[in-house]
Each structure stands twice: as structure tokens, then as C-alpha cells.
């Protein structure tokens, strides 16, 4: 698949300390704006622009997944893992980037995120110009 073959570079975008669970941050990597979320200790990142009309997903509300077999009955799961565009409400699964409305053909690009120790980051190859990297701290790293 073309995606897997593409070379990615890793960018340090935040310290773990500044992003406790429930927080989010808009980061710029090169020309891309990426919305980064800490949901219950797990990090997710998607391209900030909604594929509909380019609304900023970082300003959107986080919701769960509602599924229903019939009127009057519903099931709620995956709390906080769906982001809703602040403009027209289009919904995207933060794990896969897929839209709720048409998962097979409309999606927002997700980016792999990891938490790396300062010692690893110091070794590289990471882009970390804006951070003073300390070996004892941990950092949030996005691969673009």
C-alpha cells in the first residue's frame, strides 16, 4: 500500500506533562495543521481540516458512537473517540480517520502518535527544534 511505503519523519510536538488526558492541541508541522488529542491517556492525531469545507476539527466536540437497530433503541460506545466538525457536524473516528457518513470513501487523514522518552528523543532522528529535550521527561511524537 502506498501509505506504508511512504517515508515518515517524526516530530516532537508536545511534552507529555502539558497534555494530560482530556486535553487537545493544534500543532503545525511544515505546512500541515494537525489536531492532537489525549483521550484517556491515549493519543490521536488527525489532519485539522474537515474534508467537507475545511473547518478546524481541533475546535470540534468529542462524542461517542451511537448505533441503533430501530427507532427508540440505541447503543452508546467509544466515548470521546469521535470528533465532530464545529461547522456542519461531520463526524470522524479518531482511530481511523473514517467519516461516519461514508466510511469507505470520506475520511480525514490520521497520523501515528507515540509517547517517547527523552533519552530516545535525544538520540534522534526526531525533529525537535522547539523543544529543549530532557532525558527524564516524556514527549509526544507525531510521524508525518
Amino acid at each position: 500500500m502506498a501509505e506504508a511505503a511512504r517515508q515518515r519523519t517524526k516530530h516532537v510536538v508536545a511534552t507529555l506533562a502539558e497534555m494530560p488526558p482530556g486535553t487537545r492541541k493544534l500543532v503545525t508541522i511544515g505546512k500541515r495543521e494537525i489536531a492532537l488529542f489525549n483521550i484517556d491517556g491515549e493519543f490521536f492525531a488527525v489532519l485539522d481540516r474537515c474534508p467537507h469545507q475545511q473547518g478546524s476539527l481541533c475546535k470540534g466536540k468529542l462524542i461517542g458512537l451511537v448505533e441503533s437497530k430501530e427507532p427508540g433503541e440505541y447503543r452508546y460506545s467509544r466515548p470521546q473517540q469521535i470528533v465532530r466538525c464545529p461547522w456542519h457536524g461531520w463526524e470522524f473516528d479518531l482511530r481511523t480517520g473514517q467519516s461516519q457518513v461514508d466510511p469507505s470513501s470520506i475520511r480525514v487523514r490520521p497520523y501515528p502518535v507515540e509517547v517517547a522518552d527523552g533519552s530516545t528523543v535525544k538520540q534522534g532522528p526526531y525533529r525537535a527544534e522547539v523543544f529543549d529535550v530532557h532525558v527524564e521527561d516524556q514527549y509526544v511524537v507525531i510521524a508525518v
Binding site: R24, K59, K61
Partner: peptide
């Protein structure tokens, strides 16, 4: 109103 997330730039920069 809903709490707004921390943002690094305004819409003025986007357009």
C-alpha cells in the same frame, strides 16, 4: 458556551 480548546492561531491566518 462550550469551552474552547487552546489554539495556536486565528482564522485570520487560515484564509
Amino acid at each position: 458556551p462550550p469551552t474552547a480548546p487552546v489554539l495556536d492561531r486565528t482564522d485570520a491566518d487560515r484564509t
